[in-house]
Design a binder for these strands. Structure first.
Length: 588
DNA sequence: CTAGGGTTAG
């Protein structure tokens, strides 16, 4: 009360139609009783970071920077705006922070900073003779649980016991959550059993533990026993079923929910997307009464994962139409979609849009997606400048760049970059080799291809996958070494997949090798009878040497099987997408 | 002589 009371006796403690703009308009008309607002009231009305800065100015102006009560509130508000740096700088000016203030600053770091940072603040707190209480531990333990840092969590558990706060329901719930998430389900259960009182939080934490562990039976048993069921308990149980692909039980429970919320919908949508059932995912999405950013994101990345980038882009613009501001997750999804459709105009728009909505493109997954998108869409100049600007280049970004160079015909540069990557100490994996082999085959670099194929096996002990073989076959086939390609395909340990045979068929077409082409085509008709492309290839082979009877024969068989060449997609002119599609990318 | 903590979805 000190501030408020003490303040109220002196006029300086009030805010007379203050310089704090966000309050001015509200009191502008109350001319009869001029407004006098305490800092405490200002906190309640504080809506933006700007407001908070204004309050901060006022605190300094009044010389209240050392006031633990006010600074605590300030820190909490700062936390809610996710601005931990600001909170910390203000905190650091307080010479004698009290327990509550320490707890607040720790909580803020738990949410936004790294675990080691947070723990070092906790250590500073202990060094200044502050005794942690029941409020100190839950956020600390929670951040261990988030990072699955069981070792650190156990140390904290030890301290919990030492400071005698293990009976506290909040502390205990956070410990149950920690052990449950880290798979120490026995420990979690023990702590749960020993509780003198439990509430919906502790029950749910325990259910989550079992659900993550895959013991859905025990999870369900608890769920049915809960005296105090919560919407989070329902969500946890449903998500457990979804994670372990028991969609029947998940849906059954979902239908029984008294009030279905976004979280439950999102769990289901993510699950259906993961198993490739976009129809059901979309069905659920469409029937939602209201949608938040997370569920939009789930749907977009669902479409991306299932190779339907056009749908993803549509959904994105639908979302903009509903005036929802996209976040990082959404934009990463959109960028993956754009990479798949390879539309340079869209890529350019996204690139500038990111800055417009102030998304931090230095964050790793954003940067990676952005480089990938520019590379895929043919803006190698932009991709290169982003890539070279990265402080630490990782395998993913290298691969994006190499693939970008590859698909735009710069095989030699791709090879250089791959070698630079290895020289820089980044270890290539199987995907990296697929990318470089594809680059070699695309540019006809037979010798380099052989070199990488051997290096992969000898230097990195990577067993060549069907994809690796397919790249080599493509490479040899296009170079006219059909014999070698055939030998390679015969040497494959596993049954060659359609990609390998398809590469060979393409080579036969290229070099007008009818005899081999016929054999390979027959093989392909067997492996993927539904793919019209193989029939088209064979008929092209015949057409190239004027065997028109055979051409019509193949066409007839194709018709017989009711196969048609896939129509080009027409998503551009249905009004969702504001750009022209660019067919050729010649930015190299 | 105030205030600060734990469970659910991308």
């Amino acid at each position: 009360m000190s501030i408020i009371r003490r303040s109220s006796s002196s006029s300086s403690s009030y805010l007379p139609s203050s310089p704090i703009k966000f309050l001015n308009h509200r009191h502008h008309h109350q001319t009869s009783s001029p407004s006098f607002l305490s800092i405490e009231t200002l906190f309640k009305k504080c809506k933006t970071l700007r407001n908070l800065q204004q309050i901060h100015a006022r605190i300094i102006q009044k010389g209240l920077e050392q006031d633990n009560f006010l600074i605590s509130q300030f820190v909490c508000l700062c936390n809610s705006f996710s601005n931990i740096t600001y909170a910390f700088s203000v905190f650091n000016r307080v010479s004698q922070p009290n327990l509550c203030l320490w707890n607040s600053i720790i909580k803020g770091h738990c949410e936004k900073s790294s675990l080691s940072n947070t723990i070092s603040i906790f250590n500073r707190m202990k060094q200044s003779d502050m005794v942690p209480d029941t409020y100190t531990f839950p956020p600390l333990i929670k951040s261990c649980s988030k990072g699955l840092a069981l070792r650190e969590g156990k140390i904290l558990h030890g301290l919990v016991v030492r400071y005698g706060v293990e009976a506290d329901i909040f502390v205990r719930t956070s410990l149950i959550d920690l052990y449950g998430k880290c798979g120490e389900i026995k420990f979690a259960r023990m702590l749960f059993e020993e509780m003198s009182e439990r509430n919906e939080y502790s029950w749910t934490a325990m259910i989550v533990g079992y659900a993550n562990f895959g013991d859905l039976g025990s999870a369900r048993k608890l769920f049915d026993e809960i005296p105090c069921r919560n919407i989070a308990s329902w969500n946890a149980m449903i998500d457990g079923y979804v994670k372990f692909r028991d969609f029947r039980s998940a849906r059954e429970l979902f239908e029984q929910m008294p009030k279905k919320n976004v979280v439950a919908y999102t769990s289901l949508i993510v699950g259906y997307a993961e198993v490739g059932d976009m129809a059901t995912a979309r069905f659920l999405f469409d029937q939602m009464p209201d949608r938040d950013i997370v569920v939009w994101s789930a749907l977009i990345s669902g479409y991306v994962q299932n190779g339907r980038p056009h749908e993803a882009v549509k959904i994105f613009f639908m979302m903009l139409g509903e005036n929802i501001k996209p976040d990082e997750f959404i934009m990463v999804g959109l960028m993956s979609a754009c990479s798949q459709v390879r539309n340079l105009e869209l890529a350019k728009w996204i690139d500038s849009y990111l800055t417009r909505i102030s998304i931090d493109i230095r964050r790793v997954h954003v940067a990676a997606a952005l480089i990938h998108m520019n590379a895929e869409c043919g803006n190698m100049e932009r991709a290169t400048s982003l890539f070279e600007g990265m402080p630490k280049k990782d395998l993913i970004s290298y691969c994006s760049m190499i693939h970008g160079l590859s698909i735009h015909g710069a095989g030699a540069q791709a090879v250089c970059l791959f070698d630079r990557m290895v020289a820089e100490g980044v270890t290539p994996d199987d995907v990296a080799f697929t990318v470089i082999l594809a680059a070699c085959s695309h540019s006809g670099l037979v010798e380099e291809g052989h070199r990488y194929f051997n290096s992969m096996k000898n230097d990195y002990s990577i067993v060549p996958s069907p994809d690796h073989f397919a790249c080599m076959i493509h490479l040899l086939g296009r170079a006219g070494k059909l014999q070698e390609a055939c030998e390679l395909i015969k040497s494959m340990p596993e049954e060659p997949h359609a990609g390998a045979w398809g590469a060979l068929l393409g080579a036969c077409k290229l070099h007008s090798n009818v005899k081999l082409g016929e054999i390979v085509a027959l093989k392909l008709f067997e492996i993927e009878p539904q793919n019209p492309g193989n029939y088209v290839s064979l008929s092209n082979i015949y057409a190239a040497i004027d065997r028109w009877y055979d051409v019509s024969e193949v066409r007839r068989r194709m018709k017989e099987k009711q196969l048609r060449k896939l129509p080009g997609c027409s998503w551009i002119d249905d009004g969702f997408f504001p750009f022209e599609q660019n067919q050729e990318h010649t930015n190299l």
